[in-house]
Computed example of a mutant assay.
Amino acid sequence: MDLQKIKALIDLLADSPLAKLEVIEGEERVKLVKAKRRGKRAEAPSGDERAAVTSTLGTQGSQGAQSPLAEPAQSVDTPQAAPATTSEPQLVRAPMFGVVHLTPAPGEAPFVNPGDTIKEGQVLCTIEAMKMFNAIESELSGAVLEILVAPGSEVESGQPLFRIG
């Protein structure tokens, strides 16, 4: 993936309400995470905020070269995924419109099943939008109580995907 395309993705993320963006093209993979600005209130990100590249480029099976734009990963707080202080089940919601895929590839085992114990950052599914697959990661640890969508179905932004307890 060339530097021009990565810069365009950074600008796209900075201008969008999304907190994370992951792009996989063949064996190349780039993951962008919007950095929080220090000293600002937690509001909608302004257009001048930049995204931090938090992954390496190259093939998935190799170390890959570190991007010249790479910065240390920073945690991103999103209102939909704030961990609960009670034992109440939480919903994982779709961050965008697209087609949900519950397996990494046709014929493979699902990312998660009801009853599975998951960790924060674990991939739950992917959402395909504009021929790009976006990994949806859990923002909390717990057990998958229910999968609320069917494989291959279209989902809207904000639609509940999983119930985690």
Rank of each mutant, 00 (worst) to 15 (best):
A135V: 06
A129Q: 03
E137P: 00
S16H: 04
A51T: 10
K5F: 14
V23K: 01
I6L: 13
V23H: 06
L18H: 12
L69V: 07
D11H: 13
P17S: 05
K119L: 13
T59Q: 09
V53P: 00
A94W: 00
P45M: 00
T126K: 06
A82C: 06
K36F: 10
E139M: 03
D11S: 14
V30H: 04
E71R: 13
N134L: 00
T103S: 13
V123C: 04
A52Q: 14
E120N: 11
L69F: 15
E154G: 06
V100D: 01
F111A: 01
S87F: 12
D77A: 12
E22A: 06
S67N: 12
C125N: 01
L69N: 07
R163F: 05
D2R: 10
P110E: 09
A143P: 04
T78M: 14
P79A: 11
I136F: 11
A70Q: 13
A8M: 09
C125T: 00
P89S: 03
A81Q: 10
A82G: 08
P104N: 02
A81Y: 02
P104H: 02
E146Y: 01
R50V: 15
D11K: 12
I164Q: 00
T126Q: 11
A42Y: 12
A82Y: 04
K119A: 15
A105H: 09
Q122Y: 09
V23N: 01
E27P: 03
K34N: 04
K131P: 00
V155D: 02
I6S: 03
S46Y: 09
M1I: 11
V33R: 00
G152L: 03
N134D: 00
G61H: 10
A42I: 09
K34P: 00
F162C: 11
G107Q: 02
A143Y: 07
